[in-house]
Simulated scan of single mutants.
Amino acid sequence: MQLKKYTDYALRVLIFTGTKSEGKLSSIKEISDTFSISQNHLGKVVFELNKSGYLETVRGRNGGIRLAFPPEEMNVGKIVRQFEDDFIIMECFDKSKNECVISPACKLKHALNEAVQAFLHVLDSYTIKDLITNQGQLKKLMGID
Rank of each mutant, 00 (worst) to 15 (best):
A10V: 05
C92H: 08
G77M: 02
S36T: 06
F93S: 12
R59G: 10
Q137Y: 11
G53M: 13
V45F: 09
I28R: 15
K51L: 02
A68K: 12
V46C: 14
E22N: 11
A115H: 11
K44P: 03
E114P: 00
I144L: 15
C100D: 04
L123T: 04
G23K: 01
G143P: 04
T34D: 04
S36M: 05
A105H: 14
D94S: 14
Q135S: 07
T7V: 00
Q82P: 01
L131E: 02
E30A: 01
K109E: 07
N62F: 12
Y9C: 01
V122R: 15
A105L: 10
D8G: 08
R59M: 08
H41L: 13
L131G: 04
Y9T: 07
Y126W: 07
K129D: 15
M1I: 01
T17R: 04
I31E: 03
G136H: 12
F69S: 15
L120F: 08
K140V: 11
G60P: 03
L120R: 08
L112R: 12
K51Y: 08
I79G: 05
L123V: 02
V116H: 05
E30P: 00
F35R: 06
T34C: 07
L123K: 08
V46K: 00
Q135V: 03
A111M: 08
N50K: 12
T7S: 13
F69L: 12
R81H: 03
G60Y: 04
S36V: 00
K51I: 01
A105D: 15
A111Q: 06
